Simulated scan of single mutants.
Amino acid sequence: MNHATPQVGAPVRTFTQLLSSTRRGARLARLLAVTELRSWGAPQDLTERAELVVAELAANAALHGRVPGRCFRLTLHLDPPTGRLRVEISDAHGDLHPHIDPLGVDPDALSTSGRGMALVAALADHWDTVPYPPSGKTVRAVLTAPAGV
């Protein structure tokens, strides 16, 4: 009697790091994310999109989510068989939630801010915000590698 041996897929990869709520911490989050995804053998397209998403979310955490003396947390979850990556940035400022300006609202063309979450929405399959106890929030973005990569 022949039985099919179940194939165990590659394990889900997880990376978590606390970083200072500063511009330097945001830059380090981006560099760590890229390094970790490359070491896991993530597809280049996924890594490049994740780099931009992490950069934006980490910059927001350092700029808008900063509470003196508190860090922000970067977490990556990669499921290799599905090519699905979840990026999470948690900060201590739970009362400020990111948003995208409604269609038809034209931001100042010379403004240096206000477009980041639109970029995240364009690069990610989905993003949302959930509470991060005791008083913070986590912004999550899900990215999927293109089929056949």
Rank of each mutant, 00 (worst) to 15 (best):
V120P: 01
P133M: 03
A59L: 12
A26G: 08
N2H: 15
M1R: 11
H126Q: 14
G69S: 09
A58C: 08
D45S: 15
L78T: 04
A124V: 09
R66L: 03
R13N: 09
G41Y: 10
V67C: 03
G148W: 05
A92I: 06
V53W: 11
G104E: 09
F72E: 03
G94A: 11
P80T: 10
R66E: 14
D108L: 14
T16C: 04
D79H: 14
P133N: 01
A59S: 13
A145L: 03
P133W: 05
V139K: 04
A145I: 05
T35Y: 07
P43Y: 08
V149H: 10
Y132G: 00
L52C: 11
A33C: 07
Q7V: 15
T35G: 08
M1T: 12
S113W: 15
A50Q: 09
T5D: 04
E56N: 12
G25R: 09
L19R: 06
Q7M: 07
Q44Y: 07
L103C: 01
T14R: 15
F72G: 04
A55T: 08
S135M: 07
A55M: 11
A145Y: 02
L52N: 12
R86A: 13
H99N: 05
R84L: 14
R13T: 01
L85A: 04
S20N: 08
G104F: 10
R24A: 15
P11Y: 02
V87K: 07
N60V: 07
V149Y: 03
E51M: 14
D128M: 06
P80G: 11
L85H: 04
L28M: 12
D125I: 02
E36G: 00
M1P: 09
V130N: 00
D91F: 11
S39F: 03
L74D: 08
L143V: 02
T75Y: 00
P131V: 06
